[in-house]
Amino acid sequence: MFKTIANLQIGESAFIEKLCLDKIPLKLLEMGCLPGMEVQLIQKAPMLDPLYIKVNGSHLAIRKETAEKITIVK
């Protein structure tokens, strides 16, 4: 099992390893979500979805299904 952004605990940080390029919209990359960047999970919405992350200086909210496609390394 690869670890993805969806596996992070609140407050935990990691580095983005790979984005599943066919399934990730270009917009996410353009907003700063790129391989090698540090990503921190800031908060989860009350029903644990969407996720509020900080990546590359941007504060973004993405759905869990998207987060699951972004693998991370510590």
Binding site: K27, L60, A61, R63, E65
Partner: peptide
């Protein structure tokens, strides 16, 4: 339709 949900959380 591909769901495209990325929102900025502004300060």
């Amino acid at each position: 339709s591909k769901s495209l949900f990325v929102i900025e959380m502004p300060n």
